[in-house]
């Protein structure tokens, strides 16, 4: 069985390590430090940890102030409260002001599970992606989370990083390098491309295994950097594989699927199919049950790839027809 590791746990660990080297790091939380794992930093650096209580807007505003004073603030809470409740302070005081605030939010997506729709964030990527000056990153495993944090700490500007409640399969080893604005071809292939982020990268790899049994080899791209997005890697994939399936634990509106569709529609037309939450809210259940219920399993991705391959056939015929 594949090794699994908590990416929010990794956040806590890495943050505490970075805190030694970067004396200007301060960490803020809104009464969820046990869940977001900022507690690890808090224990080690109590003077540089600020629990703001259940007040996400104030947490973000305070973080912006820390940045103005030359600090490197990391602000954490659940994804929906960080990006939803505090959206306008993020817009005004962080993105518009272009200050160096890192928002690292846990509990993204439906795999939050039992807490239900109120706590399952299916909109955060869209809410952050729409903001000018904002960088949006969704790591695919604990290794990538660590690399992302080591990268963004040196990047001067607003960043949103999404983490999750559940443990993710470990996909990368220490040799992996993360670059803002770059996707990673995690598995080569020429029969369509699956572009995924976060936990769905693991699901995409499993879908790739299923498709392999049919003799189909899709390319699989981990698009952890959703904004800025890697246009070059997408255009290349569209040209070389002729069809794209996106997979994300987020609404199909406004997230990775939309970002990819925007690039493909402007740069290189190929069929696109979006796997994600189909414009509805989450419900209570176990993560695995929810993944099945919302159509986010490897089998769902497999089906989408087969559909895209069908459409690709059709669109190639259409192009040929046009030529005649």
């Amino acid at each position: 069985m594949t090794e699994k590791k908590s990416i929010r746990g990794q956040y806590g660990e890495t943050l505490a390590l970075l805190g030694e080297k970067y004396k200007d790091i301060v960490v803020l939380d809104a009464d969820l430090s046990g869940s977001t794992k900022t507690k690890v930093f808090a224990k080690k650096f109590p003077d540089r940890f600020f629990n703001i209580g259940v007040s996400e807007q104030d947490m973000i505003g305070t973080a912006a102030g820390f940045a103005v004073a030359g600090k490197i603030p990391f602000a954490s809470t659940f994804a929906i409260f960080a990006t939803g409740r505090a959206w306008e302070p993020i817009r005004q005081s962080v993105a518009y002001s272009k200050v160096n605030v890192k928002i690292v939010a846990s509990h993204g997506g439906i795999t939050v599970g039992e807490d239900g729709g109120s706590h399952q964030s299916i909109e955060d990527i869209a809410l952050m992606r729409v903001l000018p000056n904002m960088t949006v990153i969704v790591p695919a495993d604990a290794t990538e989370m660590r690399k992302v944090l080591e990268t963004v700490v040196d990047y001067n500007g607003p960043v949103y990083v999404r983490s999750s409640r559940i443990d993710f399969p470990v996909l990368y080893d220490n040799t992996y390098t993360f670059t803002i604005g770059k996707g990673d071809v995690i598995r080569e292939g020429t029969d369509a491309t699956i572009v995924a982020c976060g936990f769905m990268v693991s699901q995409a790899l499993a879908a790739g295994d299923l498709l392999g049994k049919r003799g189909i080899r899709p390319r699989i791209i981990n698009m952890s950097s959703i904004k800025p997005i890697d246009t070059a890697i997408l255009v290349k994939a569209a040209q070389e594989t002729g069809g794209i399936v996106t997979a994300e634990e987020h609404s199909i509106i406004g997230g990775l699927g939309s970002a990819v569709a925007e690039v493909v529609s402007e740069e290189c037309h190929v069929p696109v199919k979006r796997i994600g939450v189909q414009d509805c809210f989450g419900i209570s259940g176990k993560p695995n049950e929810l993944l099945e219920y919302f159509g986010l399993t490897p089998e769902d991705i497999e089906r989408a790839v087969l559909e895209v391959l069908e459409k690709r056939k059709y669109s190639i015929q259409e192009k040929d027809f046009g030529r005649r």
Binding site: V26, F50, Q57, D58, I60, G61, T62, A63, A64, G65, F66, A67, V68, A69, G70, K71, P73, E88, P89, R91, Q92, S93, Y96, S97, V99
Partner: peptide, 21 residues
């Protein structure tokens, strides 16, 4: 020091600055 205009946010920012200082 920082962009403002949407009301209600300056005190949080001032807190952050003061704590940072």
């Amino acid at each position: 020091e920082i962009s403002t205009g949407s009301l209600g946010q300056g005190l949080s920012i001032a807190n952050g600055i003061a704590l940072g200082l």
